[in-house]
């Protein structure tokens, strides 16, 4: 067998693995039940809650990610390596651990002050937002930084020699040029926030009609051995996920640099 065939075989095997998993959902799929569960108030609430929280969390993540990615990509400053490493924390530490860290923080005197005088995070929707934010902010920064690293710095140098201040250079040159990368990063961040489970359930709990996002709802249905219900929710999640990936593909098609 040629090397080419071996490589292709590996990709097909991996594909089949996921394919079988998706197909096996259909074994427990009941058409009538699908719409019943889909349109049930609890499911619709989960979908709305998930989409709303993921969107808000993405906005917050990107608000912090874009400037910090620019700083990491273009400037050198004291402690840059450390910042860079800490940003990878959500990738290497399990979301449950991150959630636990947040809970522990809210049990320190500072955390308790915030809870009692400011926003109540634990077991509320704000908790979901916080969970999604801390699990995605680092990754969002990474993704945006990768997009900005790809833009030759020469464009910014040209802008400067034409009289553009650093902020104008950022808004007129860097931002438009990394637009596609930023959009792709936002979509992936949104998808990651949508699927966030570990930190969400640790911080916000799993109260139906209050803090039950789609992944939490899947877990709750499975825990009560409601396999048909689980299948429906998983299909919804897959549907959203695949359409997102497709949109990302559209935005990450390469644009040539002159």
């Amino acid at each position: 067998m040629s090397f080419k065939r071996i490589a292709i075989t590996f990709s097909l095997v991996t594909f089949c693995l996921y394919g079988v998993l998706i197909l096996s959902l259909l074994y427990f799929y009941k058409g009538s039940l699908f719409f019943e569960i889909f349109f049930s108030e609890r499911t619709l609430f989960s979908i709305r809650l998930s989409i709303a929280t993921a969107t808000v969390a993405t906005v917050f993540s990107m608000f912090f990610a874009v400037p910090s990615a620019y700083a990491l990509s273009r400037y050198s400053f004291f402690g840059k390596k450390l910042v860079d490493t800490i940003l990878e924390l959500p990738m290497i530490v399990s979301p449950v651990a991150l959630g636990a860290m947040v809970l522990i923080f809210f049990n320190t005197p500072y955390g308790m002050t915030i809870q009692s005088n400011g926003l109540q995070f634990v077991f509320t929707v704000y908790g979901i937002l916080l969970a999604q934010f801390i699990t995605t902010a680092g990754i969002a920064t990474r993704l945006v930084k990768a997009a900005m690293d790809e833009i030759p710095q020469r464009y910014e140098e040209v802008a400067k020699t034409l009289g553009a201040s650093p902020s104008k250079t950022f808004f007129n040159v860097t931002l438009p040029l990394s637009k596609n990368g930023i959009i792709a990063a936002s979509i992936l961040t949104w998808a990651k926030a949508l699927g966030e489970f570990g930190a969400t359930i640790t911080i916000a709990g799993s109260m139906a009609m209050k803090t039950e996002t789609i992944p939490v709802a899947i877990f709750m249905r499975l825990a009560s051995a409601d396999i048909e219900g689980t299948v429906v929710l998983v299909l919804i999640l897959i549907g959203i996920g695949l359409s997102i990936l497709y949109v990302v593909r559209l935005f990450t098609s390469k644009t040539p640099y002159v």
């Binding site: 140098e157 400067k160 034409l162 040159v173 438009p176 040029l177 640099y257 002159v258």
Partner: peptide, 19 residues
């Protein structure tokens, strides 16, 4: 800073803004 020096610069790789 470079943007206040009033120096034009024609780079070897031109770098026309693609957007």
């Amino acid at each position: 800073p470079p943007h206040k020096r009033g120096v034009g610069y024609l780079f070897q790789d031109l770098a026309l803004f693609p957007h």
